[in-house]
Design a protein around this nucleic acid. Sequence first.
DNA 1: AGTAAGCCTTGATGTTGGTCAAAGCGTTGG
DNA 2: CCAACGCTTTGACCAACATCAAGGCTTACT
Lengths: 251, 251
Amino acid sequence: MTDSTVVPLQALKVSCSNCTLRELCLPLGLNREEMTRLDAVIRQSRRLKRGEALFRSGEGFKSLYAVRTGFFKTCISSQDGREQVTGFHMSGELMGLDGISANVHGCNAVALEDSEVCELPFSRMQNLALEIPSLQHHFYRLMSREIVRDHNVMMLLGNMKAEERLAAFLINLSQRLTVRGFASNDFILRMSREEIGSFLGLKLETVSRTLSKFQQQGWIAVDHKHIQLVQPEQLKQLVAGCANAHPTPNH
Amino acid sequence: MTDSTVVPLQALKVSCSNCTLRELCLPLGLNREEMTRLDAVIRQSRRLKRGEALFRSGEGFKSLYAVRTGFFKTCISSQDGREQVTGFHMSGELMGLDGISANVHGCNAVALEDSEVCELPFSRMQNLALEIPSLQHHFYRLMSREIVRDHNVMMLLGNMKAEERLAAFLINLSQRLTVRGFASNDFILRMSREEIGSFLGLKLETVSRTLSKFQQQGWIAVDHKHIQLVQPEQLKQLVAGCANAHPTPNH
DNA sequence: AGTAAGCCTTGATGTTGGTCAAAGCGTTGG
DNA sequence: CCAACGCTTTGACCAACATCAAGGCTTACT
């Protein structure tokens, strides 16, 4: 609409210290000086269009990325072209942790809507972490949380039935939206049925059919990508049995 | 056989600096002083009997553990008792990384044969990591490697057929044995068919049937837990198509 | 605004792997 | 050394999900 040069400078100069996502992505209890040093390292606001890749598997690893606004999927693909979505990522979530091990990105990260990310140059973050113990600890915690999440996905893929998987998926989305202050029972899916299926180890037809089934039972209302959870308790009940017996609190 | 008090002291005093697993579990290029400090923090040799748990989901998290000798499984269980094996672990491999995020262990770690582990008290390791940059980096790399491994398991569970899963499993075991200097085509499975199945998202009968099928084709020889890979190339070929298109080198 | 492409839904049919059952073999512990 | 238990194998049958196919709807591009 307007040329970017006329956007007030203030709007561009978003720093970690005043970012609304602070408690989602940064360690708590940094003092002013530490915050300033962090601000100096993190590059704000790289923008991506829907469909654009933030990084691709095999590319050199330089930085982690935090979602600022928008929505991403990460996925890996096999030699013969099968794709596995390894995660969906919304504001405050970090992507690229799998690139550290070999200094090469291990997955593709693709924006599912127009999005904005913060770039965290990893080697500079590492140096900072040596001097700010809570930052070091914070990164260990973040990586550990990703491992916990992955193990729960294994449980989902290894043990759960189609209905359980989809219910778990919807409840999970709903909870993450709640944390971010969005409506938890009324949302737009940013991904296609095929991408949901890839993540859940199902075919797109099964995803579609299962959504229809939930709708018939009056548990949800489906209008294409617009989903309403009418009876979320029913979904939760469906997931209750197969959920981790020792769920890890998120913080 | 003999009482432990008569074992020569030398045999008990194994330190990281002279451990044969050094290049599997420690960062390279530590100087003598750094090594000494590491030795001071890592507690050697806790022994476990077959079937014994090293830690359990929900217990307070204090330490990471490195397998010294033996073999472990890690698993999580759901409220209604379904179990998902999240990994098998052999010498030089680290367990417990999922406990960092919430200060509580996120899985059970169980010895599948008589085993020995080194204990790495995490908070002391963290402090050490602040002073030894390569140690800090090493831990980031280890955790990242676990994430990469988990993503590959997702691909396995989400996209691969029973035969592909089992072939991938056998090839993976074989490769890890090779690295450790063991025979790569002739080994004893330490886990049951059911545990293999749990890891691969299959039922034990399917595991058994698929092993039989491989044997009929002359690719492997199965004698209960004793497995020989007669034509490992065939197994590799089966896995080739569904393997990660951008495999991450292990180091 | 019109049109093509992509996405979603639904139905009919097929296949893989799960379930149930029984028997053999090994191992362990008394 | 024997008995009991657990693990494995194999067969018969079944269910869940995949595959194939067609039609409708939405979106995006010109």
